[in-house]
Design a protein around this nucleic acid. Sequence first.
DNA 1: GTCTATACATCGATAGAC
DNA 2: GTCTATCGATGTATAGAC
Lengths: 182, 182
Amino acid sequence: MSPTRAEQRRQTESRILAEARLLFAEVGFDRTTIRAVAKAAGVDAGLVMHYFGSKDELFARAVERAAAEPVDGDVADTMLASLAKRLEAEPVASLALLRSMLTNADAADRYRTAGEAQFGQISAAIPAADAGLRASLLGAIVHGVLIERYLLRFGHLAEASPEQIIELLRPCFRALAAAPES
Amino acid sequence: MSPTRAEQRRQTESRILAEARLLFAEVGFDRTTIRAVAKAAGVDAGLVMHYFGSKDELFARAVERAAAEPVDGDVADTMLASLAKRLEAEPVASLALLRSMLTNADAADRYRTAGEAQFGQISAAIPAADAGLRASLLGAIVHGVLIERYLLRFGHLAEASPEQIIELLRPCFRALAAAPES
DNA sequence: GTCTATACATCGATAGAC
DNA sequence: GTCTATCGATGTATAGAC
């Protein structure tokens, strides 16, 4: 009935990862210490190092996620649906990346890489000569909203319902996703 | 002909402040060290401490700026004009604040305070029941664009001309600044 | 007015005991 | 599989010499 060593390790490891994600999302890479992660997970700092080798590796494991979903129908609607999902359930792994991307080069790279896949699809689906810039603006808006809602917790944005936000942004997204005249 | 001690100090102090602003904008509060600021300004670390007392005080002095300009005419146009100005000349003091606001509580507070004055005006000028949320979204968009252009230097946004960006954002801003029907 | 020397704390990482 | 002990580096801040 007692768990094998491999099971033990897997459980402890995932508990460490969960606490690391939370801390990275709350205070960012630099201010998250191995010691604090270990304490939150109820283990020793040496064990965290033993499992993950380095703080960078721990961060990499904590923020890795599944790939972005494909853009099928209308660009604006697809992006709004994706944003709505992230406004309903707080996306901890994304927040860990967002929190750290301005002060950590590795986090910035991962953020860029994660965004490029989605960017390519969106850019290709916009029928305009300046599709790249339009897609970039859409991305900047999404991230600006997520930052002020979850990371800075600005009053109106933090408390508004996802539907309210989505409906206000819909005309913006439509304007950016559609060509000026066609 | 030789400068007085007071003049000497004033010059050295403003040189230190300028270098501090640059470093805070480039790598954020935590990774900016007193030693690095001193070195960039061509003085000793002890002197920086002697002038400003603490790293927090140095940061406060480095990011303090003039108040936001008043909202006179159309809300959307006013905000777009304000954004255009910040897209033409890189606003170093603002960037220092933006770079640090996700990982430093004091920077986040200053950012919030600086934004609230402008927020109140914008919110009051929007004729809608959800004016507060609309104003917040406008702020989030502005900051999202500034972050990706200057702090992350994303290709399309970093290279686009201010006019291009402003014209693409104009319909978004109009939609958010105007009541749904009136 | 400017610099040297140093106290004091924190953190990542390593080695090894149990 | 988990924890103790410790090294080495770095950074803020202080005290005092010049």
